[in-house]
């Protein structure tokens, strides 16, 4: 059992390493992608500087906490898109029959698939997240907690993407719906939750789970709360289990590329 996990981990890392090598073939594109993404995120700080010149404590957040919010939004997005890029193209992979090669290998199909490609510009997001943490104020504890929550939040976002993508097993072409749904966390995650009221907050703790990926972690980083900490960890585990369950349930309906030839 333990060796199996170790071997799986080894393959996952190798896979990411090779995918990264592939992206580094063109050094100029590689670095410009990363740098552009950092500048891209940086641009939006202008918005917050103006907003905070109008009023302080928007949504109960200090300006420093806004930096943390931005850092975590970029970091979780970056982690998820860098290591698990293919979970965002899962529905088309299912429809086009691109699971075949992974199904004949003695490894976890889902992990093999989602780690077989990396998004280089997502490295810019990860770096940007750390830049924000340094501006926020560097402390070993903040740094470690931030890193942990970047990983955890990234896993939550990935799990949700897998769930949306897996719907393709049942409903076929769901790319547009999945893309739209996967865009929602990113849209909301850069705004403080305090400005929202009512039912939308419920969404943050269900289908747009940035409550667990961003808002609760920020609470924990600014003012450590053991209760929140365990809630976030357990919910993440639940999301992962749910994603795997749904994917493997759907896999039984997988039709490879056999349906590609059928056009009516």
């Amino acid at each position: 059992m333990l060796t199996a996990v170790k071997n799986q981990f080894k393959i996952t890392l190798l896979s990411v390493k090779y995918a990264l090598q592939r992206e580094m073939l063109n050094k100029f594109t590689f670095f410009s992608n990363i740098i552009f993404m950092i500048i891209n995120n940086g641009c939006f700080l202008i918005q917050w500087i103006i907003l905070y010149s109008l009023r302080d404590g928007i949504g109960g957040y200090s300006f420093r906490q806004i930096l943390l919010l931005w850092g975590l939004a970029a970091g979780t997005y970056g982690f998820s898109h860098f290591f698990f890029k293919n979970s965002y193209g899962l529905s088309s992979a299912i429809n086009e029959g691109r699971l075949d090669n992974y199904l004949v290998q003695p490894k976890n199909v889902l992990l093999s698939l989602i780690t077989s490609n990396v998004d280089v510009s997502a490295m810019g997001d990860i770096l940007y997240g750390y830049i924000m943490i340094f501006i926020y104020g560097f402390e070993i504890k903040t740094f470690l907690l931030y890193t942990l929550f970047m990983v955890i939040g990234g896993i939550v976002l990935t799990s949700v993407a897998i769930i949306w993508g897996s719907l393709a097993f049942w409903f076929g072409k769901v790319d547009m719906v999945a893309n739209t749904m996967n865009g929602l966390p990113t849209s909301f995650a850069t705004y403080p939750d305090g400005i929202f009221k009512g039912f939308i907050k419920l969404l943050f703790y269900t289908i747009i789970p940035i409550g667990f990926a961003s808002y609760m972690p920020i609470q924990i980083i600014t003012d450590f709360n053991i209760y929140y900490f365990f809630v976030v960890i357990s919910v993440t585990i639940l999301f992962v289990i749910l994603a795997f369950l749904i994917f493997y349930k759907g896999l039984k309906r997988y039709s490879s590329s056999n349906l590609m030839n059928v056009r009516v």
Binding site: T180, G183, L184, F188
Partner: peptide, 24 residues
């Protein structure tokens, strides 16, 4: 149909700014 789905992003943006300005 695809077009309308593509507008979800627009609606979300407006929704966010609605909340933001109401707060400010």
């Amino acid at each position: 149909f695809d077009l309308l789905l593509g507008f979800v992003g627009y609606i979300i943006h407006i929704f966010i700014f609605l909340n933001l300005w109401q707060y400010i």
